[in-house]
Nucleic acid binder design. Structure first.
Lengths: 198, 198
DNA sequence: AGCTTGACTGACTGATCAGTCAGTATCTAA
DNA sequence: TTAGATACTGACTGATCAGTCAGTCAAGCT
């Protein structure tokens, strides 16, 4: 990846995230990235191709972070791993704020509907997120820290909750960070196995 | 409200919901609504004014539904009222599917940032949703069916969960309706007061 | 030196779109 | 009946934008 290509990708990600895809013109991307407009079309075949490249790049980063989470995994029980997964997710969303905003834009879902490559990419990202929660719940059910419930469904709901917090932050509708402790507490109550297995 | 104006509003709501605001041209709105393009600008001062009118109309409908919910309120305890509120929200989102999709579009939040009237409208809708949950939680804490926790924060998280389910349905990422029972169960565990108050 | 190639440039184009406007039709009330 | 108001029309305009293309430039090879 040349430096030029990277700076186009970075500028486009920021603009698509903050202004939106259709609200951003290629001449703006060229201005912000400091690259001539023609150069963008030399590296990316179209505006949509540029969006796809941003999503592919995000997929790579998410999968890397995902693997790191498992490598450093060191939780005393599944319930604690769920808490770790929530913290991991929120940390990732904050570090990759602009990329998550692009991911949350409708345009990405619309592109996924008409472009199989994009759909595979979006699914990989989404599956990765849900997987973390599902693994943690599965482990918790094995070690007895989490109550019996369908792991996949609970993982989807968990992801929805945590991602909702990220959305609240994005839209600045509420001081979302102040909800973090509450969210953890509610998730614990939601999942914790209160019946002793001994 | 003339019949012409209504059909413009209806067509625009459907198009803005399914295709997006910037992806919909005024000539499409005119074609679908069966009204000349000039007529749209006779009734609405601009394309953004049309979006604002859709949101104002939604606000009216939501506030009406909200009042009806309270009128028919007949729950044995606060926890049951929370369940009723979740059912109410999902039913409303399904009946007003297209309007909710418009509400979920970034463009609505962006318009709210630059147009105070739009912001007041969006806040009224949002507050109304969170209020239902907050009232229910408050009642549950009074009657002892719901555990002690900050009602506003818990209401925000509840809304996030239920709205997340609506989003899953919109994006067709998962057979979301199959999550309904699970969601109810998790919310019950999350909020239920397990300590006897007697 | 001469040749090739990949990176890069920015002026240009055809298409699209929001919004305008001059004019027509329909209604209403005196 | 008619004058004025309100509702409606669709061709038109100026602006914007994605994408193109003819050509420059520098690095590497022979």
């Amino acid at each position: 990846m040349t430096r030029r290509k990277e700076s186009i990708l970075e500028a486009a990600a920021i603009l698509f995230a903050r202004k939106g895809f259709n609200e951003t013109s290629m001449s703006e991307v060229s201005k912000i990235s400091g690259v001539a407009q023609g150069t963008i079309f030399y590296h990316f075949k179209s505006k949509e191709g540029l969006l796809l490249a941003i999503l592919e790049d995000l997929k790579t980063r998410v999968l890397e972070a995902f693997e790191e989470f498992y490598r450093n995994e060191n939780f005393s029980c599944g319930l604690e791993m769920v808490e770790g997964a929530i913290a991991f997710y929120l940390d990732l969303a904050s570090r990759l704020e602009d990329r998550f905003m692009v991911l949350h834009r409708h345009i990405s879902y619309e592109l996924a509907l008409q472009n199989p490559g994009c759909r595979r990419c979006m699914e990989a990202i989404f599956d990765c997120f849900v997987d973390i929660f599902e693994q943690a719940i599965g482990q918790g059910q094995t070690d007895g820290s989490i109550v019996a419930l369908p792991p996949k469904k609970a993982a989807l709901i968990l992801h929805t909750m945590v991602d909702g917090l990220v959305r609240l932050e994005t839209y600045q509708l509420y001081e979302a960070s102040s909800l973090y402790e509450e969210l953890l507490e509610l998730c614990r109550r939601m999942l914790a196995n209160t019946v002793s297995t001994e």
